[in-house]
């Protein structure tokens, strides 16, 4: 059974008289342990798809199943719980809480789930070791570099041993070297722990490191098994 399954998902934004169809009847499956990239030109609906699949945004129509649970039928609180326990998030601008240290940021999802603080801290430290930031655990985000912040974000995403991790432009704010490091880390975690990664990205090199690529354009999935060069070609064609 696929870990993510969505059928005929639609998402429409209405602003005054203007109706924008951000997602048009999308149906797709993602298998457990896959590392999938969602690519496409700006405004094609990649982030909207990620938001709808992860439950942080509501769909206008259609059905989203995660690990057999129909996300679209859950209440807001149930969705929050589900996200806290079964999902991890990585954002382009890290979105760490500036007032908390790296370790505190990582343990936050565990505390949300009611984990014992001691165990939460142990787990946070374990993850920080895994992402190579053991020595930086006591520092606040302002004292970390971009790459380090993104590693903390990855550690935070993995804190609850989630079934799947959503990443929205995880390398968008990083230089090439750091970007490579971050993608390598995600790949390594995916391989070693078997977590499913869904990565929204513009970067063909990130796509190239994934198992497969979902191509999107104008709110539609145009290919679910695309290769990197196709995207590059598409971008070229679009000018």
């Amino acid at each position: 059974m696929p870990i993510i399954s969505c059928q005929n998902v639609k998402k429409t934004y209405v602003t005054g008289d203007i109706v924008v169809e951000a997602l048009k009847d999308i149906t797709l499956d993602i298998e457990k342990g896959e590392m999938v990239a969602v690519m496409g030109p700006s405004g094609c609906g990649k982030t909207t798809l990620l938001n709808c699949l992860s439950g942080i945004d509501d769909v206008t129509a259609g059905k989203v199943m995660i690990e057999g649970t129909e996300l679209t039928s859950l209440s807001d609180d149930q969705k929050s719980d589900f996200r806290a326990k079964r999902m991890g998030f990585i954002f382009q601008f890290y979105n760490l809480l500036p007032v908390l240290t790296a370790a505190e940021n990582v343990e936050l999802p565990l505390l949300i789930c009611g984990e014992d603080p001691k165990k939460a801290r142990e787990r946070a430290m374990e993850l920080l070791v895994q992402v190579g930031l053991k020595e930086r655990a006591g520092l606040r985000p302002a004292s970390l570099s971009g790459g380090e912040r993104q590693r903390v974000t990855i550690a935070r995403a993995l804190a609850n041993r989630p079934a799947l991790v959503w990443a929205d432009e995880p390398t968008g704010d990083l230089d090439k070297k750091t970007s490579d490091d971050v993608v390598n880390l995600m790949r390594q975690l995916n391989t070693e722990s078997g977590e499913t990664f869904v990565i929204v990205t513009h970067d063909p090199e990130v796509g190239a490191r994934c198992d497969r690529i979902i191509h999107m354009r104008d709110g539609e999935v145009i290919s679910q098994n695309g290769a990197v060069h196709n995207i590059a070609q598409e971008i070229k064609e679009l000018g």
């Binding site: 991890g88 601008f93 979105n95």
Partner: peptide, 16 residues
Amino acid sequence: RLEIGMMRAIGYKKRM
């Protein structure tokens, strides 16, 4: 607002 959004994303409920 952004941090609130992130908190909501990682599992904070509205009442939290």
